[in-house]
Nucleic acid binder design. Structure first.
Ligand SMILES: [Mn+2]
Ligand SMILES: [Mn+2]
Ligand SMILES: [Mn+2]
Ligand SMILES: [Mn+2]
Lengths: 219, 219
DNA sequence: ACATATTTTTAGATTGGTCTAAAAATATGT
DNA sequence: ACATATTTTTAGACCAATCTAAAAATATGT
């Protein structure tokens, strides 16, 4: 049986593989799982020995099919639990992640399937991240950061790039939550800030940082 | 932070303390948590060092207030999760225990409170075992095994003494589930078996073993 | 009471997961 | 190309949790 620690490493490697396509290097993993690089090397040997990753000294690691499947299952479980916490227990979107970090390690295929059904087979979690299906397939969606929108374009907020508590609480505070329809009124080249119009809460100025971390679906 | 292993030991000690009132001895714990006696001795030292139990060499162990509280919280979580799995996800009463064994270790006071609310503050789990409230108080209930009922007495099945999968499946098969009203028609002194009448499924003969492991609330 | 049986503890080893400090390999800049 | 910086691995140690085998303490029976 795979341990929670091993699972966390696989998830970290998966996450880091997503954006680079390159083998994932030791330091990156160390940073992601919050350990010393030496510990990562030890774990890499173990994961390789058990067939979860391909590892060559000094060359970084990649997931095997087996490791990839486990990582996707973890993400599926994590995001389904987030939906449960959000939809059924009314936790806020800045609270769900920490609890889901624990719940994602519960081992029961049947439980996952039934949760999925109970929740109505959701395709996205409370942060707008896609939930892979039983086969590990992620729903693709046309989305771009608000910062890439042109003047007078409209769209609906569908996700966040940054997942930090402060950012999520900030968004909540200013009613910039998932499902909010916005229109770009003005773009200030000086500092990249933007004036936007929301249906329910009027005009707002958002900084470039915010605009860059909020995804919209155009139209 | 207390580990899952330590939690399991505390739960085992609590369970064993319930029936004996005496300090719990090493072998009993070893049997309960499925380890070697030597491992229990090691763990006893650690749990004592951390203030969860009182331990004196060769004298057995008792829970401290701190240890007792943790054990009760574990039982509360375990049984609430069982209710969730049974009520909301339609697992059967022989399936819920194994998954709850994992879920009971999730650390979040808030989660427990909200689950409790979602489930309607249940007082008993799917096996009829009492769920302690937030303060650790168990609901008391008048109950006795069917084997102690007199002829022509009536009652409602409210719990099981044995929790094994085979027994639970056996009961399901013969419709002897919680809430079933029964009347004792005849008692066979020869082997302790009994003839009972159920409202929905007619007359049945049950063995002494079954009669002894099924609790009813009289009236 | 004393020999025997049972229970419990200790001794010593193993495995998973972690660390720091030092060594080795790789990358980078002029 | 070579010195320097960075990254990665190794070496050696530690802690939690476990085991088996042997020793010590306690319980039991006649
Ligand atoms: Mn999350
Ligand atoms: Mn999420
Ligand atoms: Mn149970
Ligand atoms: Mn139960």
């Amino acid at each position: 049986m795979i341990s929670q620690t091993e699972e966390n490493y696989l998830k970290a490697i998966f996450k880091l593989s997503e954006k680079s396509n390159q083998p994932v290097n030791t330091n990156a993993i160390a940073h992601e799982v919050n350990t010393a690089a030496a510990s990562v090397t030890d774990m890499a040997k173990r994961l390789a020995k058990n067939g979860y990753i391909n590892y060559e000294r000094y060359k970084g690691v990649t997931l095997t099919t087996k490791g990839d499947e486990i990582a996707k299952k973890l993400i599926r479980k994590h995001r389904l639990w987030e939906v449960f916490l959000f939809d059924k227990l009314n936790f806020t979107w800045d609270e769900v992640h920490d609890i889901a970090e624990q719940l994602e390690h519960i081992q029961s295929e049947e439980l996952v399937d039934r949760m999925d059904k109970l929740l109505g087979h959701p395709k996205f979690d409370p942060h707008g991240d896609p939930i892979p299906d039983k086969q590990g397939v992620f729903t693709q969606r046309e989305q771009r950061p608000i910062s890439e929108m042109a003047k007078s374009e409209t769209g609906v907020i569908v996700g966040v790039r940054e997942h930090s508590k402060p950012f999520l609480q900030y968004l909540e505070r200013f009613h910039l939550v998932l499902g909010t329809r916005i229109e770009v009124l003005e773009i200030f080249d000086y500092d990249g800030s933007m004036k936007i119009l929301t249906e329910e809460h009027g005009e707002k100025i958002i900084t470039q940082k915010v605009a860059n971390n909020l995804f919209v679906s155009l139209g």
